[in-house]
């Protein structure tokens, strides 16, 4: 049987467009608020609201541990979660390349529906465009999200303080490593799955434990190392890491060793960095260790008033050295 492909007619707004939307998107996105009109009519959040948008162009669109659909939901859900906001509504916009297989699009839509469902967020509006062959690579997705900020939560990258403990919610660098391996440009194979996951429930469990948290940030592009440098700069503090305490999967370690990469600079899509007062840190880690996506959570370092705007690492031989600051040589098109 011949494979069914997306054609320019699917994007022309006529009958084929309606068919594509009905068969692929509506059949998967089952929110009661999903609109057939020009805009969704919704109840507003109570109190403060968080609002964010993100574009996804990952290559390849399918990778061990997920695909661009799952990633596009996790990305926006996690951006909202980082601000202490319960994700409520999402919109999704597709730009699809002419000739993209319908069954792949179906797989992407299924992953989106499943992930949105897990995160407790509704997809309420969408848009579909088809671009000519070669004008985009496969499929690009943009998601926009609204969330309701939990009461009593006040998070910002500028709020890290001397004495804070630094926690990662899981092992680091798996997404970047999985994408790198799936590009096959190094002739390496290893069993590494992307950590791509929706983290609202993870973050909620932390905020239910204590609201006394200063910073939560998603360690996506640039990885944990880049995030730490951003926060050290934003909060004007020094960061000291204990290299041996940072959770890294053995296969990721092996790949990094071979290619001369530091897992601290590989992207995560299901791992956050949390800054909280030291006396709350153990309770937070204990909560996280019970969670579905945060079993490997650990305290990886602390904040000081020296070495302002720098990240210092305690090495395997007990010395201290600077973590080299991020520079422009990171892998392109990872999210």
């Amino acid at each position: 049987m011949e494979e069914k492909l997306v054609t320019l007619a699917h994007g022309a707004g006529g009958k084929q467009t309606a068919e594509l939307i009905d068969s692929i998107f509506k059949s998967n996105f089952k929110s009661k608020n999903l609109t057939a009109d020009d805009a969704a009519i919704l109840n507003p959040p109570i109190g403060k609201m968080a609002f964010t948008t993100d574009g996804f162009i990952v290559s390849p669109f399918k990778f061990p541990g997920g695909n661009i659909g799952k990633l596009s939901i996790c990305g926006t859900v996690n951006d909202l979660s980082c601000m202490g906001a319960k994700p409520m509504y999402l919109t999704v916009a597709f730009v699809i390349e002419e000739g993209f297989p319908l069954k792949d699009l179906e797989e992407i839509a299924q992953a989106m529906a499943k992930t949105a469902d897990e995160a407790g967020v509704e997809i309420v509006a969408g848009d579909t465009k088809v671009a000519g062959k070669g004008q985009v690579d496969g499929v690009f997705i943009t998601t926009t999200g609204v969330g309701q900020i939990m009461e009593g939560v006040d998070l910002s990258g500028a709020k890290a303080k001397d004495g804070d403990a630094i926690i990662t919610t899981g092992d680091i660098g798996r997404h970047g490593c999985a994408i790198l391996l799936s590009r096959d440009s190094y002739g390496l194979t290893a069993d590494v799955k992307s950590d791509c996951a929706p983290l609202w429930n993870t973050i909620k469990s932390v905020l239910d434990t204590t609201k006394d948290i200063h910073v939560i940030r998603d360690a996506t592009r640039g990885g944990v190392g880049t995030v730490l440098y951003e926060i050290a700069e934003q909060s004007q503090v020094g960061i000291h890491l204990d290299y041996a305490a940072i959770p890294v999967d053995d296969a990721v370690k092996g790949v990094c060793g071979m290619l001369g990469l530091d897992p601290l600079y590989l992207a995560c899509e299901g791992t956050m960095v949390i800054f909280a007062p030291n006396d709350k840190a153990q309770a937070i880690v204990k909560t996280l260790n019970k969670g579905k996506y945060s079993k490997k959570a650990a305290i990886i370092g602390h904040v000081t008033n020296d070495m302002i705007a720098h990240v210092v690492v305690k090495t395997e031989i007990g010395t201290e050295t600077l973590l080299p600051a991020p520079s422009g040589e990171l892998l392109p098109r990872i999210c």
């Binding site: 690492v313 090495t315 395997e316 031989i317 010395t319 201290e320 050295t321």
Partner: peptide, 9 residues
């Protein structure tokens, strides 16, 4: 040598 912080000791 830099990565291991050897110069600092």
């Amino acid at each position: 040598i830099f990565k291991l912080g050897i110069r600092n000791i």
